[in-house]
Amino acid sequence: MKRVLPVAVALMTGWIVLLDMLLEPAWLGPSARILLEIALVLSACALLYGTAHLGVTHVSRLVRHEPEGLYGAVLVGALLVTFISGVAAPTSGAMTWIFRYLYSPLQATLLGLMTFVLICAVYRVARLHQKRALPVVGLGLALLLIQVLASDTISPILPDLRDWIMRVPVTAGMRGILLGIALGMMAAGMRLLLASDRPYTGE
């Protein structure tokens, strides 16, 4: 029963939603809508529990006096302050302050830092003559040049060349990759809906 019931729930709910998406029979619509709403609520619950787990993990590290424990204290403190501010007054100035002056600069600078990492990587690829990475970097630089100089004034061919590269080789390559992703997703999904994969039972 411990296994049969979850498998039955996964199969039933999955097939109801899938049939509604593909065939759209009117009689199935309300059931599918309810299931989608339940899934939406469950995803929010999972997010909350995941956050709680993160906090508990770092508190336990702090209690065990692990070397990185003090950083964990900063994490837990920031988590609690943000969560309590967000729950108590979601549209308050405190939440806005946290987002604009803590969260935004941290996220933006972390991404900006990647520019420095990228230039070091480009240098290293060239320095080590990495055979597989060299064409990607060389071609990438050529494409970047075409992009940044896509001006009629410099050459009327450049903007058209940029458009053509995006329209033909990049589109074709990305289309093949997207088809691969879609096929992979369908295969993985079907394994769940045919109960070949049962991750919810821990198998």
Partner: peptide, 23 residues
């Protein structure tokens, strides 16, 4: 396991439907 099964079942169905009709 029950809520997880529902979440994964619905998630798989939505992903399949989207991938098929959308991509």
């Amino acid at each position: 396991r029950l809520p997880l099964a529902l979440l994964l079942g619905v998630g798989a169905a939505v992903a399949i439907g989207g991938a098929l009709r959308g991509t």
